[in-house]
Nucleic acid binder design. Structure first.
Lengths: 124, 124
DNA sequence: TTGACGCATCGAACTTCGTCGATGTGAGGA
DNA sequence: TCCTCACATCGACGAAGTTCGATGCGTCAA
């Protein structure tokens, strides 16, 4: 699914001009299309398990972790963890890399920053 | 409901010490309790209707709007809009003020900034 | 007091989500 | 080749969320 995310194309090109005031979300009413894409990313973070997964992966050594590293911290079954990881990847927050038998997940660089900038209006 | 939100007490007290690196979410694995409270706020933004409501209210003149101003932009019934507004208030993102027959909703000052800072690691 | 108005709450129908066990797939070792 | 391992997918179930019409509750004007 993971279409073009608002994380990459919503932030203003000239922050000193439009982004000076406040968040793009606040400056003017977001059109329905933008709202849908934005909500998709927020929804991905709208589950405690996924927030923990993201956090555990980011804090893990090397900034990456395989599924087997994650089932125990969140206390859920492997299929369930795999399901949540997929949602985070679809939302553009996590990246997946297959190495041998293992699948390594890592936080997409700048993804959280861009999402945060969307809220605060800060320039990327 | 709206208990003590992570928006107010999670950000580090000394940003130049701990917040310099990256987001609190990324620096170390969030404990389950924090994850639950964080997810609650994100879940409130995890619906296109609520993203639009927040945006329309913020962009409305005076930074506030009553329910009757909001049903038409989102194209939903009044009870449904009222329901979504309640969720946003419970999440600490909107404030409600009754004036006469009307209930005026406005974005809580700094709420989006604090949420964004949680993602980017920027100091408030 | 009565009525109109704005909004919240309720109850019900429908959809989506979170979770699991079972099973499929693909890589690596014996 | 056969087995094991790590992970994804499937099918199913209960829980939670979204939406509506109907109704209740204040406020204000007549």
């Amino acid at each position: 699914m993971a279409t073009t995310l608002p994380l990459t194309d919503v932030s203003p090109a000239r922050p000193d001009e439009a982004g000076a005031c406040c968040s793009p979300l606040v400056r003017e009413a977001a059109d329905p299309e933008t709202a849908v894409e934005l909500a998709r990313v927020f929804k991905a973070l709208g589950d405690p398990t996924r927030v923990r997964l993201l956090s555990v992966i980011a804090a893990h050594e090397g900034g990456e972790a395989c599924v087997c590293d994650l089932t125990e911290p969140v206390g859920l079954s492997q299929p369930t963890v795999s399901h949540h990881l997929r949602l985070l990847v679809d939302a553009g927050l996590l990246a997946r890399e297959q190495r041998g038998k293992w699948a390594y997940y890592s936080v997409v660089p700048g993804a959280l920053d861009r999402l945060g900038a969307l809220l605060t209006g800060a320039a990327g």
